[in-house]
Amino acid sequence: MKAFRYTALGADGRRHRSVGYAADAAALRDRLLDARLHPLVIRRALLQQPGRLRLTEAEAARLGRDLAQLMTSGMALAQALALLETRETPRMGAIAREVRQRLIAGEPLSRALEVADGTPARFLQALARGGEASGRQSEVLAAGARSLAAADQLKKRLITLCLYPAFVILVAFGSIAIYAYAVLPSLEPAFEGMGGDLPAQTRAVLTFGVIVRVLMPVLGAVAGGLAVALALLPPARRLAGDLVAWLLMRGKRSPLRDFVFANLASRLAVMLQAGVPLAPAWRLAREPVTIASLSRALAAQDERLMEGVRLSEVLRRVAVCPPDLIHYVQMGETSGQIAAALNDGSADLAARAQEAIERVLSVLTPLVIIVVGGLVGLITMMVFQGLLAVGDAVAM
């Protein structure tokens, strides 16, 4: 699928400008003509890579919720998608249209949803397979939509918490750059000829400014190259994501690990509540996990579940599984309410991940401010020491 910006003339004589998604410009033109719009301009949208369309967690939650509501009202799935196609954003409308066309061609919903890409889309596909296996498609989609919405809210909350420390760190680097590029170069002529009379601290500050002016362009070029590689090369993104995930999941209390397993437990609970047997429910719930090492560890437990091994024993064999989740599952197995126990465990892990990040940021933010303020004050003091030394030399 490719993105195109178009301008079309409507039957009422007004011009319509929007974005459309199609395999090529001719397909988009034919679709506009079918909608009684006369295309005037169709051109490729900039910075758009051809391929499958991605769904965010919020969009996947809305799509699942809307489909569940329309199906519950008695509307056929193809009719529901046709309705959503006209009421959603251009990208969501393109996804709904492609899914509807695949349904008309005879594919099941789980296969038709493969037109969309991304982790939330894979979860929707897993939900559709669970609904097809249990015969409760609308209930599974509704429960999965709630799980996706909760995960999206938690992720947005964590991102919001990280914005202020990131801004403070950016200001810190900006302050250092201003000193290195604007303040210190303007003072260096005043210190020329001082030689050994210049205080050692001031010489250190001037040397620091030279080092920063040399290294900052190099670091900026490296950062820009990495950003371009991550933006254009999917293997680079996967490698970087796996490396970051491996680093962040280390330790006894890793917020990322709690977040990932909270989502896994929530998805598994949705499948079990829909009546999907444990072994296929496990496979469907683990499919959206994108961390390579964890995905392999979870997939290695498929056969053990098929053999009838208890879920708590399977989770115990996953080295990074939080012990608290294992405890919840054990209690659920004892009481015969595994789905409810998984929901409780998911809520506990999600709350703990958010609390841990809030605690770290509550310490990190003032610490960065203190360090930046101290560094700027120290540099200023050392510069003034050099200026005093120059004044003393002139007075003598």
Rank of each mutant, 00 (worst) to 15 (best):
A200T: 08
L226Y: 06
Y21K: 01
A393K: 09
R316F: 13
A190V: 07
A356E: 12
L364T: 02
L278F: 05
F259K: 03
D258E: 09
S110G: 09
D344I: 05
A76N: 11
S254Q: 01
T7C: 12
A35P: 04
L305R: 06
I369F: 15
A68S: 08
L378Q: 14
W246R: 14
A339V: 13
M306A: 09
W246F: 15
A8T: 04
P217L: 07
L47R: 14
T86W: 06
V368M: 13
A145R: 01
R286C: 11
V244I: 13
M1E: 11
K156S: 06
R111I: 01
L184I: 12
L215W: 05
G118H: 03
V320M: 08
L268C: 07
G225T: 08
R267Y: 13
A3T: 04
Q125C: 14
A26S: 12
G93I: 04
R316Q: 11
I357Y: 05
G118R: 01
E139G: 09
D392S: 15
N263D: 15
R31S: 12
L70W: 01
I176M: 14
A285Y: 03
A150T: 04
P185W: 09
L184T: 03
V329A: 03
A245R: 10
A319F: 04
T202P: 04
V212A: 11
R43H: 06
V210T: 14
L215Y: 00
R286M: 12
V19M: 07
P323E: 03
G377P: 01
Q330M: 15
G220Y: 02
L342S: 06
R111Y: 03
L378F: 15
A166R: 07
G251D: 02
R31A: 10
R317A: 14
Q49P: 10
S134A: 09
Q48H: 12
I211R: 13
R203D: 07
D344E: 15
P90A: 08
A78S: 08
G196C: 04
A116M: 06
E192T: 13
G275M: 08
A341K: 04
V363I: 15
P185Q: 06
T119N: 05
R316A: 07
Y179L: 08
I95K: 03
K252W: 09
N263T: 11
A353I: 08
A150S: 06
R91V: 03
L378V: 12
S138V: 01
A143N: 11
T334M: 11
A78G: 05
V171S: 10
P288C: 14
R15W: 13
A145G: 00
L55T: 00
A262E: 00
V363E: 11
F173Y: 13
L187C: 05
E85C: 01
P50I: 00
R253E: 15
H16L: 13
R316Y: 07
P189T: 02
L141W: 00
R250I: 10
G144R: 11
P366D: 05
V41P: 03
V168P: 00
R237D: 10
L77Q: 15
A82W: 15
A190P: 02
A61I: 07
E107C: 05
A319R: 10
R317G: 07
